[in-house]
Design a protein around this nucleic acid. Structure first.
Lengths: 216, 216, 216, 216
DNA sequence: AATGAATGAGACTTCATTCAT
DNA sequence: CATGAATGAAGTCTCATTCAT
């Protein structure tokens, strides 16, 4: 006896021409952005192709251009989106603290938690700096955002000077160091959650003077 | 009857085919490597074209293939070359010190000096990590080198444990932190010599416990 | 119980789906034709996109397909429309004259006046010949119209033979020349009203034998 | 018994990778130009694809870019080539004459002969005016050449004024008319050799006052 | 009757690589 | 050893057309 059953197809049919049923512009746009963040984070601006972006969003390459004028514009939009998410979170975290060390630790904790929830954010923002350096157009398009980022950490140092944690003559040293440390944490270890947690713990100890004991 | 006379050419001919008289294989190979380091550092693996590499070496794209089988191989060779230069220098610098802090400081000083003499080294090594992440082939080809890099810093931490500067229970925290810090210094500020110096000074102060004063 | 109240909208909604209340099919069709004539005249068949046509008609690209099956069909319809306007005007103008020279002058005057009122007509008809040559489909679709055009001028020559202005042995020379002259006037100078007027005046003088004086 | 013979292949093998034997840069470049002239003349700038140009030259689309930076540049190069050929010929032809009418007739004869030998020249130059109107980039790139063209005919009118054939007050009428007539001859009938000859003969008669007899 | 999301084919261009010279 | 002509695959983007709403 043979039983014929309507089998669910294993490979999804290629979509038909024309507007698909149940399509929603806002949804699609967000799918493009989310897929693009992951793709750009993994492959960088150059190596991420149109095809990557389209497949990640479940559409064809042509349809991308219904939402954005160019791959470049997609990158810029992803960046604005990511930057907004991260720094609004950081700003909230820092608002609950009063000291420099407290602020740094709050940022580290927030970064670690965000990285746990969605690692593509950190990966993408780490990749941005490199892509910006490699592509002058990106540099000028994202420059404004980059200044916001820097401003955020400079204000944290300023707070440290006000509280007396940092000597005013060390302002610039502290600014450069903070930038280097946080970028290091992001770029070096954010792709390995355990290493990230360890480095964050190590840095907290170091800041509190508990990591190193002097020997003569 | 035909008379052959050596005619003086009025206009300089474009370079002829065949082996140019003054070429030296070893020289050319090194020119390729040096030019490629700068190019890869600036544009990354993808955006660096064979034309870039050829022009930087003063030859044509076809000639590249006398020295290397592919662009990929050139990248690997540049990496081996750069890695060797940097870590033999670091090894020497560390050999003159006995403590963890002393070793770190010696590495920082060496890094800053190398960066002053030839910034393409630091830039290239910063770019490598990104390119490795973006290209699986590179990851597997350069993995061995990466392990050497990591081993170098892990040994420095080991030394800190032996001298008592670092508690053995903090080993992994220290390892992750050292990696993050040095990568941060390289990636975040090595393109700006002043910022690099400031961050290095800041880090030295921090390690000595002199950057931050606790407030309650 | 449900209370329905006509709510005043605060912000004007983007146009809703469905049939707009104030639309008139015939109007829209003519708007498409008028906009298309100008667009095809300016950019030609290839470079004119459906987006151009839609914007010029104040609708979207999808809506074009309610009125025409394809861009090709729009072109054909524009051509029929333009041809009809021009040649009904020419036919009237010629009807008031009796000689070959009189007919030609009437046509020249009519052409100049139409060009003053709406230059897109002349521009479009000038563009058609080129587009026909470039696209075999257009050639076969518009061939019938082209034969009408040619017939019109051939009849004018025929009249010249009847009146004795043109020797019957010169029939074909005159036909070819008339075609070349009128096309030249249209293509070469119809985009510059002053030049067009000057050329028309010059041609009238030439036909009357007053432009050139023989020298030996 | 089986006899094996080297059979000539009916379909030519696709060319292999790498430099083909017996390849010559200058030859290829000229093949590109010649093929492009015909293609641009037939299909116009827009509808002529890379593939057309490549096939006409017997190479692949990629190889085109070994010789020119863009399709645009190929068009410009074809134009410079065509313009040079035509106007150096015209200049020679006119040099043997002394009157306006003589010059015009010499030009007409030269045009007809060139058109007999290689019709693509006239076709291409006819197409240029249209393409220039449709593409602003072409307009600015070819503007200089266009002015030369116009200058040539204006000088012929100047000569007519000097010889007394044309009244000085008719200068601009004559200029516009000459332009329109020659463009008409080129655009309207140059694709039909017989019609071209007939129109040229008709124009000569008209200029000599022998085509039309006045009736009252 | 109209919108606008989506497809798919194809255009222009770049580039790593190959190979005759 | 070196040049530079050529390929072929792939990438970004455009556009006529289709179709759910």
């Amino acid at each position: 006896m043979v039983i014929l059953v309507a089998m669910p197809r294993t490979a999804p049919e290629p979509r038909r021409l024309g507007r698909p049923p149940a399509s929603d512009a806002h949804d699609t746009r967000q799918r493009i952005l989310d897929g693009a963040r992951a793709a750009f984070a993994e492959h960088g601006y150059d190596a991420t192709t149109n095809k990557h972006l389209a497949v990640a969003a479940g559409i064809t390459t042509g349809a991308l251009y219904h939402y954005f004028d160019s791959k470049f514009d997609i990158y810029v939009a992803v960046h604005a989106d990511a930057q907004e998410r991260v720094y609004s979170r950081f700003t909230h975290a820092v608002a609950d603290t009063t000291t420099f060390i407290g602020g740094i630790q709050a940022v580290l904790d927030a970064a670690h938690e965000m990285n746990t929830v969605d690692p593509t954010l950190a990966q993408f923002l780490g990749a941005v700096r490199v892509d910006m350096q490699r592509h002058p157009e990106l540099r000028s398009a994202l420059g404004r955002h980059a200044r916001r980022r820097r401003g955020f950490f400079d204000e944290l140092v300023e707070r440290g000077i006000e509280t007396g944690e940092i000597d005013v003559t060390d302002r610039e040293r502290a600014q450069s160091l903070v930038r280097a440390m946080l970028i290091g944490l992001n770029d070096a270890v954010s792709d390995d959650l355990t290493a990230h947690r360890l480095a964050v713990e190590g840095l907290k100890l170091l800041l509190e003077g508990k990591l190193l004991k002097p020997v003569d």
